[in-house]
Every structure is written in structure tokens, then in C-alpha cells.
Amino acid sequence: MNQVNYSITTPQAQLVRVAEIAAAWHGRPDKLMDVILEVQHIVPALAEDVAAVIAREMGISQNDVYSFVTFYSLLPVRPSGRHTIRACSNAPCHVRGSKAVMQGIEDFLKIRPGETTEDGMFTYTLCSCLGICDSSPAIMIDDKPYGNLNYESVQMLLKRYIREDVDAWNR
């Protein structure tokens, strides 16, 4: 694993909102996941200052927040792009040509898995089964699943995201 650069400063206004969310669950460590999932939509990443605020407000320690966050593959400690593309790398997608889909994404965005485009538009990662195996190969962009893709169609899809015209596709 590469050394991770954690020096991200989260804007104060966001930290205040994080504190509000976390403070509601002081003394309820079991609510950590819910807090983090909510916070995730506010801050660019679950960075050190965010973890410190969550820990303080919930009455747990920062190392527990960090241990927790780094365990789950969908919780980023580094800033992600505006959209996160997750491409399923498991066998059911693999046998239906997920490699071509991944190649399509990489060629189009010029990034490798785990990277973010320079304009900060897309973060691209691989993931385990998304449960859309009836239309594999599948990917998920943010909360939206897309199936039956190939090298060309995934690039069409990404173009729509860039044009902010993705609703038509989803229809």
C-alpha cells in the first residue's frame, strides 16, 4: 500500500454540520455507520479533522473511527471526485466482459483504478459484486447501477455524465 497523504483540511462550515450530526448520537457508538454515511455527503473525505469531530461529539476515540472507516471499502479517507464509478471485478461480470468495460473507463478517463480525474469529476475504483448480476457486466456511478455495458457503451454513459444529461439514460 502506498503512503497515504492525509493532509486535507475540511472547511469549518462543514465541520460544524458534521458536529451537529454526530452530537445527536453521543454515547451511541452503534450509530457510527449512520453518522458516517450521512457525513459522507457533506465532506469531501473522511479526513482526520472530520474523524476528530465525529469522535469528540460521539464520545468515542479517533482511532476507532479510523479503524472503522478504513475497514469498509465504500468509505473513503481521501477526497473523491464528484462522481464515484465502481466497476464490479467479480467473476459473474468478468465472464460477461467486464474487462472491456474497465478498459473503456480507463481509456476514456485516462485514470487507473483508485485514481481521480484531474478535473475532480470522477473517481474510479473496482469493487466486489454489486448484485446486478442479471445484467452484468455492471458498474455503479454514485448510487445508480448500470448493466449490460461494453467498451463503447460505458464511454457513452460517461459522456452523458460529463454533459450532465444522465437522466435520459436512466429513463
Binding site: 467479480n90 467473476a91 459473474p92 466486489s128 459484486c129 448484485g131 446486478i132 448480476c133
Partner: peptide, 11 residues
């Protein structure tokens, strides 16, 4: 937590 690859019956 239907994580088994190739499975989506629970969904």
C-alpha cells in the same frame, strides 16, 4: 448483506 458474487435473489 447479500455479498456473494453472482447473487441477487434477496434484492
Amino acid at each position: 448483506d447479500e455479498g456473494e458474487p453472482g447473487t441477487n435473489k434477496d434484492r
